[in-house]
């Protein structure tokens, strides 16, 4: 659910709020004692990437794809406080060249989402959210083999502030997150980025993530447009034709996308989500196009949800 944390050079970059509802970047809340479970499948690929600011293709990689299957539980502790988690399994592949893809469980994420304040004036409704998240690798996956590695290996802490505006069925949500990323350890015991480091430890720059989303939010149908930006606070640029990449790259990306969620009228336990995202600008990332589909099932342990 904490999709902002699941970004891969250059493979997946990141998936901004691909599955709508119950992520750390949207204003949708589970009511008290509602338990939602979802499975999402995500396919992301690129055949062009940015070495620093130089955009290129690479016939020795062809199209690099990342697929992800993710389990996402979410529980409403109160109407204003949700906890959610996600467990992704990721696999990568290059369509050309000789490089072997990798696969494995990536990073588990746990998020607490708190609607701190709600107010309305006339037909206008305004909510303020504070969201904290933690993600950490579930397995000792290889990070020395980018872009085929399934992740960057860092433990991340995310602090996000979010404002949601609603007027009738129209909504607009804006959020900004600060992501603290722990240092990571390579299999190598020395490496060169812009200088020679005689250690296996890589200092990870922190990052910011911003998102704007707006659209229609009905009882059964939600449709939104998304604008997402991920900016690394530091890091280094890939030098020309350098295939040896480390997780402390200055990875920046701006994406536009859309998401649709439909809840069955006849059986409101079940909803389906589909979406896509396209990278319009970037630095040290692949220009990825991502699609996702998801299914969610809600259990009502308390009284039935109002909306």
């Amino acid at each position: 659910m904490n999709k902002s944390l699941i970004f891969l050079f250059i493979t997946g970059v990141m998936r901004p709020g691909l599955a709508l509802a119950q992520t750390d970047m949207d204003a949708i809340m589970m009511n008290k004692k509602q338990f939602c479970q979802g499975i999402t499948y995500d396919y992301s690929s690129w055949n062009q990437y940015w070495e620093g600011t130089f955009k290129r293709d690479n016939a020795n990689l062809g199209t690099v794809s990342t697929q992800m299957l993710m389990y996402m539980p979410n529980y409403g502790i109160t109407n204003n406080l949700n906890v959610m988690a996600s467990v992704p399994y990721v696999w990568t592949k290059a369509s050309a060249g000789t490089l072997h893809g990798l696969k494995g469980f990536q990073d588990i994420s746990i998020v607490a989402k708190w609607r701190a304040y709600k107010t309305s004036f006339g037909k206008n409704n305004l909510s303020f959210f504070a969201i904290g998240g933690l993600s950490t690798p579930l397995s000792d996956y290889v990070i020395d083999f980018l872009p085929m590695s399934i992740g960057l290996g860092s433990t991340n802490l995310t602090a996000r502030g979010m404002v949601d505006y609603r007027r009738g069925r129209f909504t607009a949500t804006g959020s900004a997150a600060y992501i603290w990323r722990s240092n990571v350890k390579l299999d190598k015991d020395s490496y060169y980025d812009t200088e020679l480091h005689m250690t296996d430890e890589v200092q990870m720059p922190n990052a910011m993530q911003y998102q704007l989303r707006t659209g229609y939010r009905g009882k059964y149908l939600i449709a939104e447009a998304l604008l997402t930006n991920f900016t690394t606070l530091g890091g280094y640029d890939i030098t020309k034709n350098n295939g040896q990449l480390y997780p402390n790259l200055r990875m920046n990306a701006t994406m536009v996308g859309t998401n649709v969620k439909y809840t069955l009228k006849s059986f409101t336990h079940l909803s389906f989500v589909g979406g896509c995202n396209f990278t319009v600008a970037g630095r040290n990332v692949g220009q990825s196009t991502a699609f996702n589909v998801a299914a969610f099932y809600v259990f009502y342990f308390g009284k039935k949800a109002k909306s």
Binding site: K188, G243, Q244
Partner: peptide
């Protein structure tokens, strides 16, 4: 990985 010592190493 440890012994790769490839490009840019």
């Amino acid at each position: 990985d440890f012994w790769a010592d490839g490009v840019a190493t």
